[in-house]
Design a protein around this nucleic acid. Structure first.
Length: 274
DNA sequence: TTAAATTCCTGTAAGC
DNA sequence: TGCTTACAGGAATTTA
């Protein structure tokens, strides 16, 4: 699943190749993958624009096209954004093809179609409710342990649910929520408002470690995740708890438990996490 | 206001 | 072997 580290890997890989390039044309093979504006309008508006920057916000990839206009890509669960030569065979589930002025294709592929493409200004997309207000970036230096503590204090939901809430914290999904809670030795079903300042600081530190380690390892290819070149990441080899239900905890050896919290499979160690 | 449940969607794997 | 069914989950939407 593409979460913050996976999206960061794709955005930073694409940046040097896309900045300065112009989008010559856009072919929508499955138009409903575009959620805003209407797909025909989207395809018309996008041609001829130069890509000024490539950024990431939460799990969103933002391509700035000038005049504050953004091409926004959200990968959902199985979305892939790849930069390829035009001769590369077009695989199934390729929903959009952007042709660049150097001839290369930027292709969006997404078998399960949970992802989306958007076009507009930040304010316009907010207005159209196409893009929600996102919480702080967990690896931003301005986001401190005390800031996380303040965010947790207001919530009566389980810690896991708060970490998954993009309005509370942007970019964390099921993998890194479980990994961070394990590192912080906190049970995922602990109610957020009851967590001490000390524990919140530990969770903040664990979030940083989990996310930054995963970025260094180019993300987790646990499902269909591939980078912009179609390559797998390396973090799935070193995950502590995600996908390891029933297997021994690396710290104490007891089998890891799986429960369902906020509708998500949640793996943790009953001995190490309190 | 907040939190939980539901929905979308298809590939994969388990079970009979 | 082949069919059916359950499951995976990000986030918008609906319900409580």
């Amino acid at each position: 699943m593409p979460e913050l580290p996976e999206v960061e890997t794709i955005a930073s890989d694409l940046r040097p190749h896309l900045v300065g390039r112009t989008i010559v044309s856009c072919e929508l093979r499955f138009p409903t993958i575009v959620r805003h504006p209407e797909p025909e309008v989207f395809a018309d508006l996008i041609a001829g624009h130069r890509i000024e920057s490539v950024k990431r916000r939460g799990k969103y990839i933002l391509l700035a096209l000038g005049e504050e206009r953004l091409l926004v890509v959200h990968l959902g669960m199985t979305g892939q954004l790849r930069l390829v030569s035009p001769e590369t065979p077009i695989p199934d589930h390729t929903h959009a093809i952007f042709t660049l002025d150097d001839g290369r294709h930027l292709r969006y592929r997404d078998p399960r179609r949970f992802g989306r493409l958007l076009l507009g200004t930040e304010a316009g997309l907010r207005e159209a409710r196409a893009m929600p207000k996102l919480g702080p970036e967990p690896i931003d230096p301005d986001f401190t342990g005390d800031a996380l503590y303040q965010a947790l204090r207001r919530r009566r939901a389980p810690l896991k649910a708060v970490l998954l809430d993009q309005k509370a914290l942007a970019g964390v999904g099921n993998i890194y929520a479980d990994e961070s809670l394990h590192r912080a030795r906190l049970r995922p079903d602990r109610i957020a408002e009851g967590v001490s300042r000390k524990s919140a600081r530990r969770l903040h530190e664990s979030l940083r470690e989990s996310l930054e380690t995963a970025i260094r390892n180019r993300g987790s290819s646990v499902d269909t995740y591939r980078d912009a070149w179609g390559e797998v990441g390396g973090q799935q080899e070193v995950l502590l708890v995600y996908g390891r239900a029933g297997q021994p905890c690396f710290t104490c050896g007891r089998p890891l438990s799986a429960v369902r919290i906020a509708g998500r499979t949640t793996v943790f160690c009953r001995r190490c996490q309190h």
